[in-house]
Design a protein around this nucleic acid. Structure first.
Lengths: 341, 341
DNA sequence: CGTAATCCGTTAAGCGCTTAATCACCCTAC
DNA sequence: GTAGGGTGATTAAGCGCTTAACGGATTACG
């Protein structure tokens, strides 16, 4: 309680009249001390407000009691996306109560991200890491395998033997397309995030496949970078093309909202003349007028599940591939029948 | 480079044919080794890919090389506010390159936040902490002082001897009011965040003072909790009262956007019949139609400055109170002359 | 030429904790 | 009566690094 001096196990040992070894056994609930002694030691420990020094513990047992997350998105974009904060709050839920802390780093390029993992590993600062936004042949995967650094991917199981937590996005893509088709749409364009991301590719593939199955020859995918500027540019181009689509599906909320502005500017009313669907539901989607129909994914759940899996993997569990609950389309006011053509 | 085995200084010592002490001196750029030896040692060190073990270093020099940030906002709200992510990205900028990492925790009640600080201190896991969202007689201030845990407040200098980084919100409040008055508004209501926060009080006080100075008897402050639901409720009440205001000033972007929806629902056009100003500018403000006039604060700058100050304080520097650059009003399309009454 | 100062390096203790090895007892079994 | 087997404790080594204290060799100086 008092400021400055932190009690150590040897303070406890002195107070209890036993060796530090006994204190350690007692405090860690291991055999080697009698019940009365254990009780006495524990009483003294929390009377003194003892908390184990993480450095000492790490040094001796090799565990950092921390996991790392690095988010590689330019500062410009990072503030905008609610995704990460929701993810982090999910992570915390799974971490709460336990001895493990979260180390966070935000970088603005992939090299810095790799360097961060390497440094954390070298410093023995983390027991494992979470990997988000996987790209094709992601160098991080190679790195963590080379370093034997336990890691869990937040995303589809594309790397064999790599534990991951994923959400069935294909299902959601199909649901969205079927929903739009049921409304009468035939010309649908998907405004995707950067091609490099695995999840972008997954969704695009699912989109193309489902479009073929549903007989939509005009369905296509265009790319932007998640920013509102790029989305506006792309949307404008698409909407002013020869035979413009009647529905757009976006890879995040910001781009969808941005498109709403573009539609307005072009004199297109949403949803009567143009339907819009956002991915990742958010306050943004709810608040905007018209409110955006969106695919809601269990983001916090992903975070929690990933942490639990990572902690297991750190403890030597086999590399599972965990699926979260399914995403669902939340229809709001940005989708309706297409105008009669 | 290779997986599994991390080199230690004694590996380096062996390779260089010197003692570990010499290696330590060389690697830390301290006197005690000759230039050639130092160079040889350093070469070997980075050929081996040596990185100091943070646990070992902490244990021996007492430094954790980490700072902590705990954000106490309910999960429901956290994802929505771009504030924290921007803050974090500012924090990272100041941390980049150095040996210090960021430990992040999200809690949903104040007791858990206190417990987190206490635990980090006990575990010697952090060298200092950042305090956000100060409240009146904040128990965290007492705690860090009692523990002698270096801390920097992100907010106004209300606690003497407590280092802080603040932004001149009063100035911004005045600017906003003067701007609205210049447009012709006389009935202005401020929709604030929770009263408990010091920054809420500061702005409210500034608002009341400036309103008096400008001769606005009807100016008043109502409170919500930063959420869109609460804001909608409050806004609806205010706008349907006897003599409704012609301009509203909000404490965050989400509430302002929410109000936009309410206005729409009540058949009030923005900005012609109602002017809206958001605090903290964001993509949300830019993207919404009409785009919201907003007060832009240098949030990332705050984060960077706070980290720099905290690192100084940890190194024994005196408790400065640093002011960031001033906030500025960014006028957009949500503010205009009030309707002729 | 003897002594002091300087330079470069080694030794060893210590940071707080874990844990294998050991030990001192007491109990039981044959 | 002694070998064997538990208990419940202590001892001590070790995790990787820092750093005060020490020491041997070289150089400077009166």
């Amino acid at each position: 309680m008092a400021g400055g001096k932190r009690p150590t196990i040897s303070d406890i040992a002195k107070a209890a009249g036993v060796s530090t070894g006994a204190v350690s056994y007692a405090l860690n609930n291991r055999p080697g001390v009698s019940e009365p002694t254990r009780r006495r030691i524990m009483d003294i420990a929390d009377r003194l407000g003892w908390v184990p020094s993480s450095a000492a513990r790490s040094l001796s047992d090799g565990r950092a009691n921390a996991i790392g997350l690095v988010v590689d998105r330019p500062a410009r974009v990072i503030g905008v996306e609610p995704y990460f904060m929701q993810l982090i709050s999910g992570i915390q839920v799974a971490l709460a109560g336990g001895p493990t802390s979260l180390l966070l780093q935000v970088t603005d390029n992939s090299a810095a991200e790799l360097a961060a993992y390497r440094r954390w590993w070298g410093e023995r600062r983390v027991d494992g890491v979470l990997l988000v936004d996987l790209v094709q042949n992601d160098p991080r995967v190679e790195l963590v395998q080379e370093l034997r650094l336990p890691a869990v991917v937040l995303g589809e199981p594309v790397v064999p033997d790599m534990p991951c937590v994923w959400t069935d996005d294909e299902l959601a893509v199909e649901e969205v397309l079927e929903y739009l088709v049921a409304l009468g749409h035939r010309r649908i364009v998907r405004v995707a995030g950067p091609t490099k991301f695995v999840h972008t590719q997954t969704r695009s593939r699912a989109f193309t496949t489902a479009a073929a199955r549903l007989g939509l020859p005009d369905a296509r995918v265009v790319h932007a970078d998640y920013s509102d500027e790029a989305a506006a540019r792309v949307t404008r181009r698409v909407l002013t093309s020869g035979t413009p689509p009647t529905a757009l599906v976006f890879d995040n909320d910001v781009m969808a909202v941005s498109a709403l502005g573009v539609a307005h500017e072009l004199g297109l009313t949403v949803p009567d003349q143009l339907s819009l669907v956002a991915w990742d539901d958010s306050a943004l989607c709810r608040l905007v007028r018209p409110a955006l129909s969106a695919v809601r994914r269990p983001i916090a759940e992903r975070g929690s599940a990933a942490v639990r899996l990572l902690l297991d993997v750190i403890n030597g569990a086999p590399a599972e591939q965990v699926k979260t609950s399914d995403p669902e389309l939340v229809p709001r006011s940005s989708t309706a029948h297409p105008p009669p053509s």
